[in-house]
Amino acid sequence: MLIWLMGFLSAVTVICNLGYQKYYRPDLFVQLIQQTSSTPVLIATTHKTYIHTGEMMGVAREIKLANLLQNPLFLLAHQGQDPNTSTIALANTLKKLPRPFDLWLVNFHAPVAEAVKTCVTSDTKSMPSVDGYEYKLYHCQ
């Protein structure tokens, strides 16, 4: 009986983020997006490994569970040896989307100046930091 009780308490601490904190917090990031963006959103990241996929899956799961955002779009811009492949993928995607929308670059490690030249950057320094998510916000009109 004691083993079952200890197993149950261990499971509760992990599930409720009491004993094992993840290094990233998609729940806080989704709340930030919901509070900041009043237009449709595109969440983009560079994609090198399955870690990047997992981080975006965490964001997508939180959006689905909270049911806060209407039809968010995601872009996993594959990044090989040349970081410009991610920049080109982002630029091509931005050209095709109807405006207005908010672009959230999350852990995006590629040059973006040319891709987002038609969008206005937002001051993210005044916004809270979120563990595991380095982000920039652009308003595309």
Rank of each mutant, 00 (worst) to 15 (best):
N17A: 10
I63T: 05
A60R: 05
I15D: 05
S38W: 02
Y23R: 15
N71A: 03
Y20D: 07
T46A: 06
I63H: 05
D82W: 00
L75F: 08
Q21P: 02
Q31Y: 06
S38G: 05
V30S: 01
S37F: 02
T53V: 01
T49Y: 09
I51H: 13
L42H: 05
V41I: 03
T46K: 01
T45D: 12
C16Q: 07
H52A: 06
L42V: 07
T87W: 00
A66D: 05
Y23G: 15
I15V: 14
V41P: 06
I15E: 14
T46H: 07
R61G: 00
A77M: 12
Q81E: 12
Y23I: 14
K48N: 11
K48H: 11
Y24N: 14
K48I: 13
S37A: 15
T45Y: 04
Q79K: 12
V59S: 07
T36L: 01
A77S: 09
S86H: 04
S86M: 03
Y20N: 09
L75E: 08
T49N: 08
L76R: 00
L28S: 12
T85F: 09
N67H: 02
Y23N: 15
K64N: 08
F29G: 10
H47P: 04
L69I: 02
G54Q: 11
P83G: 05
I15A: 15
L68N: 01
T87R: 02
A77N: 09
L68G: 02
L75R: 14
T39I: 07
L69R: 07
H52C: 13
Y24G: 08
Q70S: 14
R61V: 01
M56C: 07
G80P: 08
A60L: 11
A77E: 11
K64L: 11
C16W: 13
Y23T: 15
S86N: 08
C16T: 14
P40L: 01
K48C: 07
L69A: 02
S38D: 12
P40W: 01
P72T: 00
L65S: 02
L73V: 00
D27W: 09
Q35I: 11
Q31N: 11
H47W: 07
V59H: 08
N71D: 04
M56H: 08
N71L: 01
K64W: 06
R61W: 01
F74Y: 04
Q21G: 04
T46Y: 08
F74I: 06
H78R: 14
E55H: 13
N71S: 07
T45E: 03
P83S: 01
P83A: 03
V30I: 02
E62V: 05
G54N: 14
R25T: 15
L28E: 13
Y24V: 15
L75T: 13
L18C: 11
M56S: 11
A60S: 11
T39M: 01
A66Q: 08
P83W: 09
Y24C: 13
P83I: 08
K48T: 14
L18N: 10
A60F: 06
H78I: 14
